[in-house]
Simulated assay, not measured.
Amino acid sequence: MKSVKVGLVGLGRLGQQHGDNLAFRIPRCELTAVCSVVEAEVKQARERWGVPYGYTSYEEMLANEELDAIFIASPSGFHCEQIKKGLEKGFHVFCEKPLGLHLAEVREVENAVNRHKDQVFMLGFMRRYDPSYQAAKEKINRGEIGEPVLIRCYGLDPASQIDGFLAFAKANDSGGLFLDMSIHDFDLARWYLGAEASEVWAIGGSYSRPEFAELGDAETGAAMVRFDNQAIGLFVAGRNCAHGYHIETEIIGTKGTIRIGSIPERNQAVVMNEHGVIHECVQGFIERFEQAYRAEAEEFIRCILEGRKPDVTVKDGVESTKLGYACKQSFTTKTLINVQEVILA
């Protein structure tokens, strides 16, 4: 195989980022087809990336025998069905997080992936491909902080994006705060701690925008998790961060601590004036993780060319979804949830 021909479904904000990478930045990759239910997006994408094929029907794109792989960047509620159909048609499949919004359907996807062992499946947990998060994993593996016993994660979206998110959430099922936002942190916790969640207690509320409560969601929420090795997880997620996009992770071990992203700096330039010392902050996830999005796409293409499987597996998606869904249940029912007994819904 000289190159991998890819069909991209979903042309929203993240789809645009993936499209730029697949079209221009990934060696031995050809963005060959694009798909969106919005015809104008398809037309614009074909012109922007010089793509020969455009579709408003996912099933029609899957009938294109020139393609080798499908790259899914559609809304979360479509992921499971699109993964299964892509695999059944014989394609390698990359899918953005989350794997799905309901445990029953992600179990179906897990079974589908396991039935197609000769095909590459990869889930978009891009933080594993960020240099800072990779460096932290290497330090943990070398024992530099001893045994990790606690992980603390902040995932805060910019307040400037609240209106856009609410408009999206009213038209699409986002899965709620914990499944939509904390899923990356849950994956990191499992990765760093080498353990699965056993119990969770989650709380939250709508503090500045009551629309979140009307959607059965939280504007800001927190979860405390016990893992099966007795390690502790503290997770905070919110959609109303005044200073920008704030992603922070701390891993506390028996012999030291690692912190990643304590200040969400845009760059190394610091302004000092009558307002104090000012660090400009990143304003969105694409800006913060631009390099990681490219790196994960490169890994997907290399796995296909080299005939190997990525480190991120379907099981990572299932277990992170299980924890996210348990947090959602705890938040809704106001009770402590045993993660292994979470309802298949």
Rank of each mutant, 00 (worst) to 15 (best):
T257F: 07
D157L: 14
A40M: 12
P310F: 12
P98Q: 06
F186Y: 13
A159K: 10
R288L: 15
F91H: 03
E211N: 07
G12H: 02
G124N: 12
C95Q: 07
V4W: 09
H116Q: 09
G284N: 15
I301H: 03
Y58Q: 04
T332A: 15
K137Y: 14
G124E: 09
P75V: 11
N267W: 11
G256K: 10
S132K: 11
G284E: 05
K334Y: 06
I183E: 04
P158L: 08
G146I: 08
G7F: 09
S198G: 07
E108P: 10
A326T: 10
L11F: 04
H79Y: 12
M272F: 13
I145S: 15
A73C: 15
L234M: 14
L156Y: 13
I26C: 03
D163M: 03
P131T: 11
P158Y: 07
F121A: 00
R259W: 06
M61W: 06
G164F: 05
F285W: 09
E274F: 08
Y133K: 04
T313S: 15
G90S: 02
A135E: 15
Q82E: 14
I252P: 00
K170F: 08
C29V: 12
K334N: 15
R308N: 05
Y129H: 12
K328Y: 09
V270N: 08
E88K: 11
T220L: 14
A202P: 04
Y245D: 01
R107G: 06
I260C: 07
M126H: 15
I343D: 13
A218C: 13
H184T: 05
V106L: 05
E47H: 06
R128V: 00
F212V: 03
P98A: 11
E96F: 03
V120K: 02
I70R: 02
G155C: 06
Y53N: 04
S320M: 01
V37N: 00
D180A: 10
N21C: 14
N338E: 12
V225C: 06
E219V: 04
V34H: 02
S262C: 06
V6C: 06
H279N: 10
E81M: 05
F186N: 00
G221P: 00
G244Q: 03
F168Q: 02
A167W: 12
E81Y: 12
I151M: 15
Y55P: 02
C80P: 07
